[in-house]
């Protein structure tokens, strides 16, 4: 696995959040500067701060964390 900043490249080559499901602070920080952030439907909101990767339409949950569907493999260093 490649490991840079907030992100890990997982076995499938997808950009996965290193903080798991409970790093509320980093998830909010990343979303704060992300041009792709889009708030998901109300039922899927999990973070108290609206602007958080955890609440973003483009996060895909995994068993341990989520992958960002707007990050290309090459953008794993974006943090």
């Amino acid at each position: 696995m490649e490991n840079t900043g907030f992100w890990i490249k997982n076995e499938a080559g997808r950009v996965q959040f290193k903080g798991g499901k409970n790093d509320w602070s980093d998830a909010a920080d990343i979303a704060g500067g992300c041009p792709y952030f889009l708030l998901d439907y109300e039922d899927e909101i999990v973070a108290e701060e609206a602007r958080s990767c955890y609440n973003c339409r483009f996060r895909r949950w995994t068993a341990a964390s989520f992958v960002c569907l707007k990050s290309k493999k090459s953008s794993v260093t974006r943090d």
Binding site: A12, D40, E44, F58, R59, R60, W61, T62, A63
Partner: peptide
């Protein structure tokens, strides 16, 4: 009601598999 199902790489769910 919304029901959470398994999160697994082999399942082609969109983003939360509920």
């Amino acid at each position: 009601t919304r029901h959470q199902l398994l999160l697994h790489p082999a399942i082609p769910y969109t983003s939360h598999n509920s």
